[in-house]
Design a protein around this nucleic acid. Structure first.
Lengths: 348, 348
DNA sequence: GATTAGCACTCTATGATGACGAGTGCTAAC
DNA sequence: GTTAGCACTCGTCATCATAGAGTGCTAATC
């Protein structure tokens, strides 16, 4: 059977309508709504065909029909035209990030909020991945006699810090000298290489600071490994409850549990970070608990280099066109904001 | 009417039972459960009295009875014996905080998790309040030519940092000098005084670094004001859904919305931080959305100085005795962990 | 040949009805 | 003061009938 122009228009109308109303669509509704000027009987025949082809499903005999996952997949792949946001909307998005923001974490949090507000779905944003980023400078700041703060500055201008223990005999001057030594050691290395370099052990040149040295190495390694659990920020988790598909108690509950632990989300976003866009519909998701939801993701960049991803989670009946449009614009805006914020002097 | 020993025992049995089962308790149940050896008819009379006194309520004529808010209040104030956790449980709690943790934020996150796991309610933990804490040292770390990281070290060993903009002409040495100047200026001041001192403007001694100086002041002020939104960590938000009182959709939804924004929680915890313990039952809560829930909070200390609070949120039908016991022990453990972590050499 | 009107059929949602059971309050007996 | 007994209340649950939405099929129409 061929999927001719008329069938396409009918399918699109059904999808659009169902995305809005979340109730099965009957032939009469389509007959009135679409501009085809066909009677409900004709539509019925077409819908019957579409069902046979796997694009529609009937919850039960006397209900209307509902788009299948295959229909959404088809819609996303070939029918959807992802428009652009209006000037006003883009301006609004920009204005959401004000100049006062100084930390990447803050930008990430705002992004999550904005995404969930704009789409009415739940959003998730992975904070920038720094492994590919290059160490520029390490500074040890004395805190109490026994401890110091290790600040690791990277080329993109992002910063990681963590506490380390130092021998209590260490003076501020010692730390200063140690900072310089460590910096000399790891300068221009990507983070993970820097860890290795430090683990390789202290050279003879810093015999007496050996224990400090290993502390720094440990701290960095620890910091990187911890990233998994802290790297995802959620927005609008309660938006889930706005959609009738989550009225089912167990569904809502298991979904919220997944959102809460964040580890799964981190996995999803990490995987998605490899592609500019991903749309994962229902059973295409790996997690069983997510197979009645859909996930759309996009990536963002700093100075042209992809460093993280973000996305929304919602029911399979999702307004994919709108979501893709918003995510697309958000990727552009977010990349610009981060690039501008972190390296104001080298906007390319 | 007097509240004699027998009435007390009956009331306690009803509360205990209701906390477990969440279903109204009938006279027959009590007659069997309690060791008083009384018939259901007698219990009925007593329950009728208790209802007249305002301790019990009937959802409808032919249901059992349910403790009123007044009953819980009375229970918490006079009947409850907050036991202690067993050695094993305390050991478990301790083991949850391992030695590798270096940042207060991480301890806070673990605490939230642990609290919600132990109680089955939703927990919230406010991260340490540093306003009362004294500035010890300010260090500026160069990041990119145009910006630096201002690290503020306090006497308790806690650290705040934020980015600031600096004139691009500034060299590392300039920053080093500036660090020393700023430190000299604000040393031994509480954070908010330090802000004022910095706002008062640069002295003549640092004419040329004036703009840096105000940047630092701004950054600190900004940092403090931002505390409200980032200072609360949630644990086990989905635990809410475990309790039948939140089966009502609107209730669950509005509650989750409150949890999500966190600002209200910050307000609650700030207020509660003034008292060692608080128990707020149902309509005693200020927020209308929370009047069908209860909140129990406690505080924690660093080196004997109260610096923050934490608590749980659950249905009015809460196991107050257990919650208070857990919070109490958690306060002790958390204080010890933080004190030990941040100033290992001055455990008092 | 495509389209449509008409109609029988299916299935859900809704609301009414009645039996059941849990629990109470009261009275009279112990 | 306590308890057995009983009538009464009220919510829950299952049953049943009805209305309405939607379909598939057939026959008539364009």
């Amino acid at each position: 059977m061929r999927l001719d122009e008329r069938k396409l228009r009918i399918l699109r109308t059904i999808i659009d309508d169902y995305v809005m109303t979340a109730t099965p669509i009957g032939s009469r509704t389509i007959s009135k709504r679409s501009e085809l000027g066909l009677s409900s009987a004709t539509i019925r025949n077409e819908m019957s065909d579409l069902e046979e082809m796997g694009f529609l499903e009937q919850p039960h005999t006397s209900a209307g029909r509902v788009p299948s996952e295959k229909a959404y997949r088809f819609y996303v792949d070939t029918m959807m035209n992802a428009g652009a946001l209006s000037e006003d909307e883009i301006a609004f998005m920009r204005s959401y990030f004000n100049a006062r923001m100084t930390e990447a974490e803050e930008v990430v949090a705002r992004t999550a909020r904005l995404l969930s507000d704009l789409t009415d779905y739940t959003s998730m944003v992975m904070s920038p991945e720094l492994n590919t980023v290059i160490v520029k400078h390490v500074q040890l700041v004395p805190v109490t006699p026994g401890r110091a703060l290790a600040v690791i500055v990277t080329d993109a201008g992002l910063v990681r810090d963590s506490f380390i223990a130092v021998p209590s005999g260490c003076t501020a001057t010692d730390l200063e000298r140690l900072s310089n030594m460590v910096t000399a050691r790891v300068k221009k290395m990507p983070l993970h290489e820097a860890v290795e370099a430090l683990n390789r052990g202290a050279g003879e040149e810093m015999e007496e600071q050996r224990s400090c040295f290993t502390s720094v190495a440990d701290a960095i390694a620890h910091d990187i490994s911890r990233e998994a659990s802290r790297g995802v920020v959620l927005g609008g988790a309660t938006n889930l409850l706005k959609h009738p598909e989550y009225l089912d108690f167990d569904k809502a509950s298991s979904m919220l549990a997944i959102l809460e632990t964040k580890e799964q989300l981190y996995r999803i976003l990490s995987k998605a970070a490899k592609m500019e866009f991903t749309v994962t519909i229902g059973s295409e998701n790996e997690l069983p608990e997510m197979q009645s939801s859909s996930v759309v993701t996009a990536t963002y960049k700093i100075s042209g280099k992809p460093v993280g991803s973000f996305g929304v989670i919602g029911p399979i009946r999702m307004d994919y066109a709108k979501v893709v449009t918003v995510l697309n614009q958000m990727g552009i805006t977010l990349s610009a904001v981060l690039t501008g914020m972190l390296s104001p002097e080298d906007k390319k």
